[in-house]
Structure formats: C-alpha cells, structure tokens
Amino acid sequence: MAQSKPIERLTQSRVWRSFFRHGWPDNPLDRSLTMTSNIFFHLHPVKVSRKSLRWNYSFGLGIMAAILYGVLVFTGILLMFYYVPSVERAYPTMKEIQLSVPLGQFTRNMHRWAAHAMVLVVILHMARVFYTGAYKPPREFNWVIGVILLLLTLGASFTGYLLPWDQLSYWAITVGTNIAGYAPVAGPVMRELLLGGTEVSQNTLIRFYTLHIALLPASLVLLISVHFWRVRKDGGLAANEAPDAE
C-alpha cells in the first residue's frame, strides 16, 4: 500500500492505533482482525462460505428486516421530538408534524412505510427460513427466537397504529383489542390490561406509547442481537449444510 507521509503518520499515531487494532485490511491477518476487533463487525464470522452469499438463497431478507428496524428507530426518534401522547395533544401534534415541522411529513411517511415493509419482510424471511429447512438442528432455538421476533414486530406495528389518534387508528385498535377480549377465561382481563380500562382512552394511548417506544424496541434489540449471535454460533446460514453442487 503506497501511502503518503501524512497518512502514514496519522495511522501510526498513538490515537489512531488506540482506535484501530489492525492495519490496512489488504491481507488475511488484518482482514480477520478488522472483523474480530470491531464490535459492529464481530457479529460476522471472519470467513463466510460462497454458498451462503448467493443472493437467491437468502434474498438478504433478514438483513433487510434489521435495516428497516434501524430506519424505524431513527425516524421514530425524530418523531418523538414533536409527538405528545395525550388524547388532547396527539392529533394536533400529528398535524403539526405534517404541516409545520421541516421534513415532518416525509419523516412520518418513512416511519409508516418502513413499519409496513418490516412486517412484510419479516414474514417473507420466516417463509425463506422455513422453505430452506434452516430451522433444523442445530438451529431450532434460533427459529423459536425468530417466531418471538415476528410477534414483537407485529406488536410494535400494532401499538404504533394507535398513536396518530385519528379515526383510522382508533377503530382499528378497538377492533383489534376486542378480539383479545374473546380469549376464554382471561380474555376480559387481558383486554382491560391492554386498554387500561373498558375502552380505548388516554390510558390506552399512554400504554401503547410506552410499549411502542420503550418496551418493544428494547426487547427487539435484545432478541435481534441474540438472533444474529446464534446464526454465527450455529454455523452461519444453513446454506453451509447443503451438499456442494455448483
């Protein structure tokens, strides 16, 4: 690597080397160290099989779901700067976001469509994993985590649906929570626990908001991390188990 003097002095400096514990990744050792010494990269193995990289094996759906989740966190935090979860203020702040906040409508659009896309992509990811038999041992437990992640994703989407506090959200949540009320024995209690009362109200709004911005995203981050980590621990994508036939 032909490096100019200033760059060389920078990469040799004490400060730089405290950040990066490896040299320029143009050789096997430094390429390995790049992956193992970086917290964000270390979820990847140092080497991957060519089979698992074929786009028409996984279609990148799992990574796409994670990317969409990232978009949702980013746009969600932006929206939180303006949104107020109270029955009196929720709808007016929605209007404010759309009409007077710079790029407010656009940020909300991104959040909305990313949420729908994430539900769709997660379902497609599950179908991919099923049809490629990637739930088979030793990956059984990671499949179970995946099922929980699907339910959490649906929960996150559903709780977010109420927040605009418009007719669409109000009645969709009324319909949805009514279903919970039909559960045998625990139904009415479950419904009341969700709603914080007998109908969709201020209590419901603050409960859904807290679930939507704290409990569900935190659970998702935790389980997505476990999910990724286990993909590595269980030997990468199940494509690696397939016999060589290229």
């Binding site: 969409l68 978009v71 029955v87 709808y91 929605m94 209007k95 759309q98 409508q105 656009f106 909300r108 659009n109 991104m110 959040h111 909305r112 469509w113 990313a114 896309a117 605009p164 506090w165 418009d166 007719q167 669409l168 959200s169 109000y170 969709v200």
Partner: peptide, 17 residues
C-alpha cells in the same frame, strides 16, 4: 423507502371520535 415516501403520504384521518 425514500422514493415511496416522496410519492405516497402516510394517511391521517379525522381526529378520533
């Protein structure tokens, strides 16, 4: 997402009643 968000607006109905 960017392109879709440019052409399609997220819906906002009348206030909940």
């Amino acid at each position: 997402l960017f392109l879709f968000s440019l052409i399609k607006q997220a819906p906002l109905d009348a206030i909940a009643n």
